[in-house]
Design a protein around this nucleic acid. Structure first.
Length: 683
DNA sequence: GGATTCCCAATTTTT
DNA sequence: TTGGGAATCC
């Protein structure tokens, strides 16, 4: 029986993949080149640990960076092992793992159980309020401060240490703000994303008993995208695995493109130093791209210094040359690319969904969208305003957060006068004064006897009506939350409020639909499903903040549409036909990176883009660029010049033979006819 | 619902 | 300088 299963899992693994799966006696680093089947290795290793080596699922933990990756992995392992066998297995993001530890150990950490989780926007508005007197709402400064605090937290530096280390006036002020922020966090029971890693790390560092408990729980740890870990995440990994060091990390230093967010690819070196017995296994066979594409990628990335060298090879055939489309201006570039796409699609009878257009910055999508729209080509753009930045979702989230934690002042402020309850700035200011004076949260201060002296009877009455009603709701939410959420929405008559405040009835309807989406997610998360256990309201709301919910809209995944996205967003994906646009000095590499002499990460970005392509890769650039109103001239990207020129087909248009041109003309004619027919049909 | 005006960004944003 | 989004007005 065991033998049979063994055979089943390994049938599709190559030798290095198999080595990576079977090596479980000590620390293991899998250097997984692009498209080398790293997810397959992780899935198979988990199956191997459980099925062959007798690990209990609850003792195996796998961490990823994104919810999407975690979800996919859960799904695939459930398919491999069966839902029942996979039960108890912990596959989550770093942040969700941290959140789980905090929820179980909140007493040891010294925080209350019903803390609120702040996302970036909440953090921003809190910092804005705290720094009003110095920064006067200056967005730039507040964001600088936010990044500084985030970096401090990621480097395990608390406010006291930051203060002690501060040299310049500005550093001192920032450290002081950090102190204020910490105080506010404690007073209101607020955690931010960085705390989800920081707090467990500090706890495990300082508390031996808890550390042993978790080391006993996590008997085998797998980490995906290891090159993206920051200092505190690496520290957490070390604390969880302990001296036994039973772990596998999978990563690729050539695909490290998040150093600007605190990722430390140097953690690969540290791993080598911290675990001398580290077993390094390289996955160098690529199952994705043609030989030419891979050769180009290898040659490009060789210009970067390397800790571990690896060379990808492919058995998929040499493939077509790489094309370079040059254009006079950006509009011309978009047109040429879209024309090329249309022609290629007709020639090869491909789906729109087989094409991706990748670019450095979001703003570059605009022209491509315009041209695609003009040609009536369906496209899908990833990114854009997220669901959670919509007002109605923010409102509802604030209500839900306040329901869990009445001391969440940010949520209170958002909610207290939405919809209008005659509780204006003057009332809030008085309430705020009292709260500060007595070190109470706003909600608690609303019950303070002194408030009657401060507020005119009418205002006091409106405020009291609200807090009384809401604390009743909050009590009821402890037992059976879902009816309370319905009561809440009806109680505030949110639907009417939406119709009053929306620019149009259609917009109000849209907003109401979003609200329903959120409540239906909430409902299903409270109930649980065949993969996830039922959650409490607290858990569910925090998962929302972590953007981790059960996706129920599979419908739009099936759409046949050209994919537009940034190079960053493309990591981990693959497409038969890829256009890498804006290949010009100043765009890729970006000017800021040129100025900061940080070309290597830009090169990795180009490398990520190139290795997304399976069959055909086309670059494009324009020599002219409009910026801040005037025109500047651009050189083709240095990365194009670094590529093997023999495999590059510059300006494919000009080198076309007349026959090819005739062919293309014919297909374009056919296309126009088809479009005409389609337009007629639509009419 | 549509028109107008004002303000902001112009590099990437896993949680 | 430009263009888009939000806010504001009719």
């Amino acid at each position: 029986m065991k033998f049979r299963f063994n055979w089943l899992i390994f049938v599709r693994l190559n030798i290095s993949q198999q080595q990576a799966v079977e090596y479980i006696s000590g620390p293991c680093l899998v250097l997984a080149g692009a498209g080398s089947g790293k997810t397959r290795v992780i899935i198979n290793k988990i199956a191997y640990l459980i099925q062959v080596k007798g690990y209990q699922p609850k003792h195996v933990v796998a961490v990823t960076f994104t919810n999407k990756a975690a979800r996919e992995m859960k799904e695939r392992i459930a398919q491999t092992l069966g839902r029942k066998e996979a039960r108890g297995l912990k596959i989550s993001t770093f942040h969700t793992l941290g959140l789980d530890i905090i929820r179980k150990e909140y007493k040891q950490i010294g925080i209350k159980s019903n803390f609120s989780l702040f996302d970036d926007n909440d953090q921003f508005s809190l910092l804005k309020a705290l720094t009003e007197q110095w920064f006067d709402g200056d967005k730039d400064l507040i964001n600088q401060l936010r990044h500084t605090i985030s970096n401090w937290k990621n480097d395990l530096v608390d406010a006291t240490i930051a203060m002690a280390r501060a040299q310049t006036k500005k550093e001192q002020l920032f450290a002081h703000c950090y102190q204020l922020y910490e105080q506010q966090q404690k007073a209101c029971g607020i955690l931010d994303f960085d705390d989800l890693i920081l707090l467990p790390t500090l706890l495990l560092q300082s508390n031996e008993q808890v550390r042993e408990k978790w080391q006993n729980r996590v008997r085998y740890l797998l980490v995906d995208e290891y090159q993206d870990t920051n200092t505190s995440q690496y520290e957490l990994i070390k604390l969880l695995v302990g001296y036994k060091a039973k772990f596998t990390v999978v990563g690729d230093d050539d695909q490290s493109i998040y150093s600007w967010r605190g990722a430390r690819p140097q953690n690969l070196v540290l791993l080598n130093q911290d675990f001398p017995s580290l077993n390094v296994i390289k996955l160098e066979q690529n199952y994705r791209s043609s030989g030419r594409i891979l050769k180009a990628a290898n040659i490009l990335i060789e210009n970067n210094p390397h800790i571990f060298t690896k060379t990808l090879h492919s058995e998929l055939g040499y493939g077509e040359p790489l094309n370079v489309i040059s254009a006079n201006n950006e509009e011309d570039e978009a047109e040429k690319v879209v024309n090329d796409l249309i022609g290629h699609r007709f020639a090869t009878n491909s789906r729109y969904g087989d094409y991706a257009i990748l670019y450095r910055g979001n703003h570059q999508s605009r022209l491509f969208e315009k041209i695609l729209m003009q040609n009536r080509i369906p496209y899908k753009i990833s990114g854009g305003t997220s669901f959670f930045s919509r007002i109605e979702i923010k409102d509802l989230m604030a209500y839900l957060r306040l329901l869990i934690n009445l001391d969440d002042d940010n949520a209170f402020i958002r909610v207290v006068n939405t919809p209008k309850r005659e509780i204006g700035p003057a009332t809030l200011q008085k309430l705020g004064q009292l709260a500060e004076q007595k070190s109470l949260s706003l909600f608690k201060a609303a019950f303070d006897v002194q408030l009657t002296e401060l507020l005119p009877p009418k205002r006091f009455e409106s405020l009291h009506q609200f807090v009384n009603w809401f604390s009743q709701l909050s009590d009821n939410a402890q037992h059976d939350p879902m009816p309370v959420v319905d009561q809440l929405l009806h109680g505030i008559d949110y639907q009417s409020w939406l119709y009053e405040t929306s620019p149009s009835p259609a917009a109000a309807q849209m907003r109401m639909k979003n609200v329903e989406q959120l409540t239906s997610w909430l409902d299903s998360m409270l109930k649980g499903d065949d993969i996830d256990e039922p959650m409490t309201l607290e858990q569910a709301v925090m998962r929302f903040t972590l953007r981790d919910m059960l996706e129920r809209n599979e419908s739009d995944e099936e759409e046949d549409a050209v994919q537009l996205m940034t190079l960053h967003a493309s990591k981990g994906l693959e497409f038969p036909y890829v256009y890498l646009v804006g290949m010009a000095e100043g765009l890729l590499p970006h000017q800021a990176s040129i100025d900061e002499d940080n070309i290597e990460e830009e090169r990795r970005l180009a490398y990520v883009g190139i290795t997304r392509a399976q069959q055909v890769l086309t670059f494009s650039y324009s020599t002219e660029r409009k910026q801040y109103g005037d025109v500047s001239y651009l050189e083709p990207s240095r990365f194009l010049l670094e590529l093997p020129q023999d495999d590059l087909n510059w300006n494919s248009k000009k080198q076309q033979t007349s026959e090819q041109r005739l062919e293309q003309g014919k297909s374009r004619l056919a296309m126009i006819k088809a479009q005409l027919a389609k337009a007629k049909a639509e009419l």
